[in-house]
Design a protein around this nucleic acid. Structure first.
Lengths: 214, 214
DNA sequence: TTAAAAAAATGAATCGATTCATTTATTGCA
DNA sequence: TGCAATAAATGAATCGATTCATTTTTTTAA
């Protein structure tokens, strides 16, 4: 008989671990989507995954942690697309920055806004834990944005006065504040969030002061 | 004998109500400051206020609601100062906008940042409840900022192209994102938050495009 | 193959926010 | 003043996240 199926063989444990983690994530995802994050209890997630509650905590430190794991995929996808834009950015600075902002818009609208809302709140509440892990993402995105702006400066498309990091943080901050508005306000659509962000970018690029040559 | 003290007189209930609300707020404030919001239980607040837990809920819908009531004062002060700035704004647009932003900085740094952090998180989690009430404040502040920008446009200090509301939302968004960074990151000081915000305002006012006349 | 060791799973217990049926206090009125 | 009506206070009960001592499974080594 095949001992790898009947009798436990070395490595079995590792496989089981992945399989269970996957099962937990799928169960949680399904329930969070159907009933909402707050209304879903860890008991329910455990039941759907065919495990005991305590077991969930061997895989994820907390309910929020479970949520982060679910949302993480989207965030990673985001960074990869960002790399691509960076490799060959649009010539127009507004379009280039808008392309980066679109990543943010897409990722935040790819999942239930309720889930992002809970994730944001959890990240704020535990800055050392969840928050720190989301911050890594922020930092990477700001770095990408800063690299793009530096590139545009080098091409003389943007003024040399500007500090690329500062500009990146500012634009990213605008994305965050629109993102927060979006996830907390059902009246804000993906379209209005997008045009709000792009409008702000256009304004920043052009400036508020009257132009001599106009 | 004085019936208003010994025997219940009409109006006694009303007085008692205010007194108790005050006692609850003071007790909660003291405990939140000393032990932190999360570590303080409603039982403790009740005990310190000399009441039963259930009674707290006759005065405040939830623990978060209690927190909001504590922070509310600061927010109202903010709006009143905003009115004053609006009445006689600095001539320089950057200084004028910075004065408004300073309000935000002051109010957020006047209390324990941990309390703002919890309040922000709670507002995000319950957008219809707490969030809606904080949103009123945001809306008022954006309106003040927009009024200021309109004033600067009328004086021809800012370009006529700009949409005052859009600019106000953008600048306010930057304040919010810095505020979030501040409350979630101990390394960010009041000074660095302030200079970050003012730097961003300067950048927005001047724009990123190269200037013909430079 | 088997027994000890290590890892993982388990679910009862804890802790805290919130609810609600019951009790107590206040008010309005005769 | 005394009684019914109303408002407020009460704390035991509920519900859910999280912990942890115990049990079960898997691995290791003889």
């Amino acid at each position: 008989m095949d001992s790898s199926l009947i009798a436990p063989a070395p490595g079995r444990r590792e496989l089981q671990k992945h399989e269970r983690e996957r099962r937990i994530l799928i169960a949680a995802r399904r329930l969070f989507d159907r009933k909402g994050y707050a209304k879903t209890s860890m008991e329910e997630v455990a039941a759907r995954a065919g495990l005991a509650v305590g077991t969930l905590y061997n895989y994820f430190h907390s309910k929020d942690d479970l949520l982060l794991a679910i949302m993480r995929r989207e965030a990673d996808r985001l960074l990869r697309i960002g790399e691509r834009i960076l490799a060959d950015p649009p010539k127009d600075p507004i379009l280039a920055l808008a392309a980066m902002a679109d990543l943010f818009v897409e990722s935040i609208s790819a999942e239930e806004r309720m889930l992002w809302r809970e994730l944001f709140a959890a990240a704020i509440t535990s800055p050392h834990d969840l928050g720190a892990r989301l911050l890594e993402l922020d930092t990477s995105l700001v770095a990408q944005l800063a690299a793009l702006i530096q590139e545009l400066k080098d091409r003389r498309v943007l003024t040399n006065d500007v500090d690329a990091t500062q500009a990146a943080m500012t634009i990213y901050g605008i994305c965050i504040s629109w993102g927060l508005a979006f996830v907390t306000n059902e009246e804000i659509t993906v379209v209005s969030m997008r045009s709000g962000i792009i409008g702000a970018i256009r304004m920043i690029v052009r400036g508020l002061l009257p132009r001599a040559h106009q």
